[in-house]
């Protein structure tokens, strides 16, 4: 395999991506279905999305493809599809030292199963397991899909993953950048059940209908629910306040063994991301950011320095999270 080490993770035209595939490169791709479906078979995985953070600015494109060129990292890999019957094997399938990148279709059984169970999978934290939830043009009826480049087939109900082996002297490290801070002086929310919706919950210890509480108190649902995992602030975004059925729909699950708080609204998303991104001595191999940050923060046309990648319908950093930038470095 010829290595094209000078190439970076960035947006490319389809002709360049076809050349890379035909060269045998291992690629993780993000693009609109209309362009992904024209790619030849090869060593690649992909998910549908037409929103990106490019080198110069955030943009919408149904022609360009975002390429993470994994051949620069390793030649040893395994591409595998996952559904609810085998997702529990994802950590077991990974190499002893490496990482796993996964793309999941939204609102399907595999999405729900992964979100609810991934944290408890044995060995889940031995290597970085990261990736994103596929999406589509928000002004279309398109169906989000994942692609297995080996077979050339797409799916709307299966996740696709690539397990990559790293040499012994390298280690992959997964990090997140969350611009939202917990409102520690505000209410404490304790769900009564695990899941993607909240009906009744405990608000400051009192049983309360959460949809009614949000509606009555005019809470800004552009800012996510948050919980602290030993200092890591994990976001769960609001999808819809269903006052008719007295429930709150969410883009990721809440868990009854966790305590949640509202977050403090952000004024300037792009500036806050740049402010919160740590100094990194090595190159970022992968990054993605959330469609809600892109929309609420009006990131189209704005630049986040040194971080490029797909704008996604959910981010995966061992588990499903929302409104968060996820990135991988190799040291």
């Amino acid at each position: 395999m010829k290595k094209i080490n000078a190439m970076k993770s960035k947006l490319y035209k389809i002709e360049t991506v076809i050349d890379l595939i035909n060269d045998g490169q291992l690629l993780a791709l993000a693009g609109d279905e209309k362009v992904l479906q024209n790619l030849p078979k090869g060593n690649w995985i992909a998910g549908t999305i037409p929103y990106f953070m490019g080198e110069e600015k955030g943009l919408f494109s149904q022609e360009l493809i975002f390429v993470n060129q994994l051949s620069n990292i390793s030649d040893e890999f395994l591409i595998k599809e996952y559904d609810v019957t085998n997702i529990e094997n994802i950590a077991e399938d990974s190499y002893e030292n490496g990482f796993t990148m996964i793309i999941v279709p939204p609102f399907q059984e595999i999405h729900k199963e992964f979100a609810l169970k991934s944290k408890e999978i044995e060995g889940m934290y031995d290597n970085p397991v990261f990736g994103w939830v596929a999406g589509m043009d928000l002004n279309s009826e398109d169906v989000p899909k994942t692609f297995n480049g080996i077979t050339g087939k797409s799916n709307n109900d299966k996740a696709i993953a690539v397990h990559v082996k790293l040499p012994e002297d390298k280690v992959a490290r997964l990090e997140i950048v969350n611009i939202f801070k917990q409102d520690i002086n505000g209410i404490e929310i304790k769900p009564l059940e695990d899941g993607f919706e909240i009906s009744d919950c405990l608000v400051n210890g009192e049983r309360t209908n959460f949809a009614k509480y949000i509606s009555d108190n005019n809470i800004d649902i552009k800012s996510p629910l948050t919980t602290s995992y030993s200092g890591a602030i994990i976001n769960v975004s609001f999808k819809n306040i269903d006052t008719e059925n007295n429930k709150v729909d969410l883009y990721a699950p809440v868990f009854k063994d966790s305590v949640y708080r509202l977050s403090i609204p952000v004024n300037n998303y792009a500036a806050d991301f740049e402010k919160n991104i740590p100094k990194i001595d090595t190159s970022v191999e992968f990054a993605c950011n959330c469609i809600l940050n892109y929309l609420y923060g009006e990131l189209e046309g704005k630049r986040i320095e040194n971080f490029t990648g797909p704008i996604t319908f959910g981010e995966i950093a061992y588990t499903l999270i929302n409104q968060t930038m996820v990135y991988l470095v190799i040291e």
């Binding site: 934290y125 997964l174 030993s230």
Partner: peptide
């Protein structure tokens, strides 16, 4: 209630504490 800086340590310790509580 100790908080940490490293992300995987934060995730792993939180899950391990939950697994200990559940007897897993």
């Amino acid at each position: 209630k100790i908080v940490f800086n490293n992300f995987v340590l934060q995730m792993k310790i939180t899950q391990a504490k939950k697994d200990i509580v559940k007897g897993k």
